[in-house]
Design a protein around this nucleic acid. Sequence first.
DNA 1: AAGGTTTTAATTGTATACAATTTTAGGTGA
DNA 2: TCACCTAAAATTGTATACAATTAAAACCTT
Lengths: 221, 221
Amino acid sequence: MSNDEKIYQKILKAIVEHQLPPGARLPEDRLSEAFGVSRTGIRKVLQRLALEHFVVIARNKGAQVNHPSEDEALEVLDSRILIEPQLIAGVQRSWNPEQSERFRDLVDEERQAEQAGDMASSIQATARFHYELAQLAGNNVLASFVEQLCYRSSLVIAAYGTRSSVSCDCGDHSQLLDLLDDGQPKKAQAWMKHHLQVIKASLILESQEEQHIDFQRLFKD
Amino acid sequence: MSNDEKIYQKILKAIVEHQLPPGARLPEDRLSEAFGVSRTGIRKVLQRLALEHFVVIARNKGAQVNHPSEDEALEVLDSRILIEPQLIAGVQRSWNPEQSERFRDLVDEERQAEQAGDMASSIQATARFHYELAQLAGNNVLASFVEQLCYRSSLVIAAYGTRSSVSCDCGDHSQLLDLLDDGQPKKAQAWMKHHLQVIKASLILESQEEQHIDFQRLFKD
DNA sequence: AAGGTTTTAATTGTATACAATTTTAGGTGA
DNA sequence: TCACCTAAAATTGTATACAATTAAAACCTT
């Protein structure tokens, strides 16, 4: 993996796990120190994050973690509600015992992270579950769009989520696997739609305060 | 509009209208000469185009116009088939005489461009029709995804399209407007799905040869 | 002390310089 | 002539320098 990609992944992770909360500023100097590369490389990463709506760049003012508006938050979830259930049919077609096992493992990961109280890992695992499921449908264009939406959802939850919506109610995911194992795509599709609607409904709409971040320490490893 | 944005628009236009055909190389030097800015600005634009899949950047080898694989071509159209018909319900909700008139104008533009044999303008107008329609549904996240898919479709058509698929069969678009005027969202939705399926079916799968491009001349204005 | 103005510092925007890599061209021997 | 190797040119990757802009601080003035 390229060096840029590593930096991108680390910053994205920090945002999605809201170690870098919505609204946090991302000065190029600090980041270039923290990662040991020049501003050139940092700018490249920041611009990518901006195109993917994880940060917002204002001319001559720099980047800060996007604080999604209420509209944006709802639109992200609505987009998932429109797309993901429709992918289930394709998932069912390529479903087999190995897939089932693979996804059971993912659910276990979620469950462990949740029980350990590690919200960060929990969020990541949940997003990965949805993304890898989307991949199974066989359309890479849609899958990568779903991937982006999953990560944006993590940001939305960081801004508007409740404790329960973070974990996406882990038991739920294994229910979906049961339905796929039983070969019931209609029910699986309905389940997925309902699942996402529950997450959307669990959002509450209030903002939160700023805080200081030690970039050197956050990215020390 | 920022200077970067202008450059981005111009290069994207040239790609979508396949003045820059799939596979064409985009050396940073030539572009920076042509646009009168340093390579820094050009690289920024190229990286954006790469994230949007309009160009492909290979490490130490630079950018070239993406030549979508057959799989990618089909996936782009399938994505639109999955999304765009579902937006019609929302379009119908916000439909009114002013909207109707606005879109009639767009169809006229398409028709004129087509009759003038101006394939470039025709492609642009068609993409705009679909994009602006998507915007009416009121979900900006999905609308901007549809926008990207429309432009990617233009690239797909440049690579695999027939003469007829370029124009997207202009008469068709006014049929959709008629259905919306009559308040028949179900039929309009079915029509949209069929319309996109026709475009997908019209793709033929064969490549095409390279050619020399004079960047100075192409972007002289 | 409050408000506003000027000065200073911090931050981003853009161009350029140099290193690393790839591509092309040229040449040598079989 | 062809393959192969070497040298030159072209191209991209990254860091740095300086200009432009914005944010912060200091300094009056009332």
